[in-house]
Amino acid sequence: MTDSESAAVLVLTNRLDATADLVVAQLNNLGVPVFRCDAAEFPMELTLSATLVDGWAGTLDTGQRSLELSRVRSVYFRRPEEFRLPGGMSDAGRRFAAAQCRAGFVGVAVALPCLWVNHPARDADANHKPWQLAAARRLGLDPPRSIITNDPQAAREFAAGLAGPMITKSLGMPVDTTIVDPGGLDDSVKLCAHLFQEWVDKQHEVRLTVVGSHFFAVEIHAGSDAAHIDWRTDYKSLSYKPTTVPGAVRERVTAFMRYFGLVFGAFDFIVTPSGAWRFLEVNPNGQWSWIERHTGVPISRALAELLKEGTGR
């Protein structure tokens, strides 16, 4: 067995991640060794021992299996959970231990010189929605007109300058897109930052899943009024159809991926009645398994092949 054949893919995610299961199954089919663990297992169930040589050399050990850090060809960073620490610790002790775990376990992991899908630092950067929108605008992906503000009067003035309705959506945790009555905006807007955008008329939406150089574009057609505003509110009404990506959009998305250092991204676009693609957002660690299940597009296979390629170890 060659060094490349014996090198393993490290899968960092929770034990119940069914999406990661699909990729692990594909890696098994390709004959690629897999070491799967969750950050939550450290330090009680997972042992790390890393010595600084040229880089960090050592092992991750579950008690049943171990992984040589120097043998990691790639890392699939999915949905790891927070560290589970023993009961009975003081609040201060728990905060200190969690910080040490994060700095040590995550710090060693992110220093591994291999392919990451995606590297946590790149993932964190691309998760900032204002940054996404600014990059998309500069690269010609034509996001909706937008304002971020905690000033209700600024929001009302923004709405007055639009040709149609105004919507609001979350800047962070998932919240349904809502059409806003500007006259109803009050001082509660002052309590936090809000993202307001123009409503863009749509023929349908597209979920574009990018895996390395592979583009998997699927039309999402809403079957209800609620889904027409936000398709996440009514999955049962949706229908799907694989589609192709216009050349100019593909070039600009490739530039966007390069800008943020991503190798995976789940992009959402509106396709207008005239056929124009308008960028909404990207989730650098977005869900994709339901798209594969409904359409058969081989996203899990593409991810496995990308992880297999790794750094060529």
Rank of each mutant, 00 (worst) to 15 (best):
A109M: 15
F35M: 07
W56T: 04
K129S: 10
V11R: 01
A18L: 09
S90G: 11
A97K: 00
A126C: 15
K129T: 08
P80A: 06
A103G: 13
A57Y: 06
E68P: 03
T13P: 08
G140Y: 10
F96R: 13
L85H: 07
H119R: 14
L46E: 00
R71I: 00
V110L: 11
E45D: 12
L46N: 00
A126I: 14
D125F: 02
L133P: 00
L115D: 05
S49D: 12
A92K: 15
T13W: 04
C101Y: 05
Q26H: 13
L46G: 01
G104K: 05
A136R: 03
A99D: 12
Q132F: 05
V75F: 01
V9L: 07
V11H: 06
H128M: 06
H128F: 15
L133Q: 10
G140F: 10
R78V: 02
L12V: 14
P80E: 05
F96H: 07
N118R: 04
L52D: 03
L48T: 07
F42N: 13
A57L: 10
E82H: 09
Q26K: 15
S74A: 15
M44T: 15
F96D: 10
R65W: 01
W56K: 01
N28M: 09
E68W: 06
C37I: 13
G140M: 07
L115R: 07
K129V: 12
A57E: 15
N127Q: 11
E68F: 07
T19K: 15
S6H: 11
G140N: 11
R65V: 00
L12W: 03
P120T: 11
G140R: 06
D54A: 06
L69F: 13
C37W: 00
L69T: 08
V75N: 04
T62E: 04
H128L: 14
W56G: 00
L27T: 02
L16C: 05
A109S: 06
V108D: 01
M44R: 15
Q100M: 05
G88D: 08
G107L: 04
V72A: 01
F83A: 07
R138K: 13
R65K: 07
L139I: 05
G140Q: 09
E41I: 11
L48P: 09
P86L: 02
D91T: 11
L52F: 08
G87I: 12
N118L: 03
A134W: 01
C37N: 03
A7T: 02
E41A: 15
R94S: 12
C37H: 00
P33E: 14
Y76D: 05
R79S: 15
D17P: 05
L112H: 01
R36G: 00
R15H: 14
A25I: 00
L141M: 14
V75M: 06
R84P: 01
C101F: 07
T19V: 14
C114L: 14
V9D: 06
A134D: 06
Q64D: 03
P113E: 02
D21M: 07
R78W: 03
R102K: 13
Q26Y: 04
H119M: 14
E81H: 05
R122D: 08
